[in-house]
Amino acid sequence: MDLFGQTNDWDTKLTPILEKYKDRKHPLDYQNLYQLVVMVVLSAQDSDANINKIALKLFEIFPNIESLTVSNIDALIPYISKVRNFGTKASWLIEIAQTIQEDKNIPLTMENLTALKGIGRKSANVIMREARVPAEGIIADLHVIRVAPRIGLIPEYKDGNKVEKQLMQILPKKIWREIGMAISFLGREICRPQPKCEICPINQVCEYYKNLGK
């Protein structure tokens, strides 16, 4: 049932993008789970491209959780100073490291990930998706927040947690792990602020596209 009490078949309608983007790696260019966690924390209110630029030097100096554990905020800042809110994020990463202690202790559940500083539901969903563990939510990044209402999935919200909650109510759990990232990739590549509707694989079920000719 959707928000208006009507049945929907969104999992079938969204199959084209699920198939197009299934299992595609996240745009953050990480090499292991430790790098992913660090880069996800750094990417908040910043671009994946910017985080990718600074990652190589950062991970040369801080190759694992243990190296962050024995470091400090002042030592970390020079390597992330081009990241938005770098001071706050440096303190988050040091605290995460001191909490986890070792790479093998990185948690992979929503409850334990969101208990860490700087990791909210969106970040936890990304980490869990990339780690291929069962989904406990749906990724709702800036692209999903823009695209999901546009195609007619949900009403428009600016808050990612509200978007996620609405999506979880109308989409079956079996597609939770992939659908958020699929919508995000659609938003990055096709359903941009100026959308390329003519090449969109789901334009036939999209409310925005239906209304273009009216």
Results as ranks from 00 to 15, higher is better:
192 R>A: 01
183 I>L: 15
105 N>W: 04
103 D>E: 07
186 L>N: 09
132 R>C: 08
198 E>Y: 08
125 N>Q: 09
53 K>M: 13
22 K>N: 13
208 Y>G: 06
158 K>N: 15
36 L>H: 02
4 F>S: 14
38 V>A: 03
30 Y>L: 00
55 A>C: 08
41 V>D: 02
109 T>H: 10
131 A>T: 08
9 D>L: 00
95 E>P: 07
194 Q>S: 12
34 Y>V: 07
14 L>F: 07
59 F>T: 05
28 L>Q: 03
121 R>G: 09
143 H>Q: 12
144 V>L: 11
135 A>Q: 10
42 L>K: 02
188 R>N: 12
17 I>V: 12
4 F>I: 01
66 E>V: 01
169 Q>C: 06
53 K>H: 14
6 Q>G: 10
36 L>W: 00
192 R>C: 12
162 K>Q: 15
58 L>G: 10
122 K>T: 09
68 L>S: 01
87 G>S: 14
43 S>P: 02
40 V>K: 00
90 A>C: 11
161 N>I: 13
170 I>F: 07
118 G>H: 05
171 L>C: 08
117 K>V: 06
200 C>W: 05
99 T>E: 07
150 R>N: 10
17 I>G: 01
187 G>Q: 08
155 P>S: 11
22 K>A: 13
203 N>F: 10
115 A>C: 06
118 G>A: 04
34 Y>M: 02
179 I>S: 06
104 K>S: 13
75 A>N: 13
151 I>H: 07
24 R>Y: 04
169 Q>P: 02
14 L>K: 07
123 S>C: 08
119 I>M: 02
160 G>P: 13
64 N>M: 01
91 S>V: 14
120 G>R: 05
20 K>L: 14
86 F>K: 10
135 A>K: 12
112 N>E: 15
102 E>T: 15
99 T>H: 08
56 L>H: 15
172 P>Y: 01
125 N>A: 11
180 G>F: 08
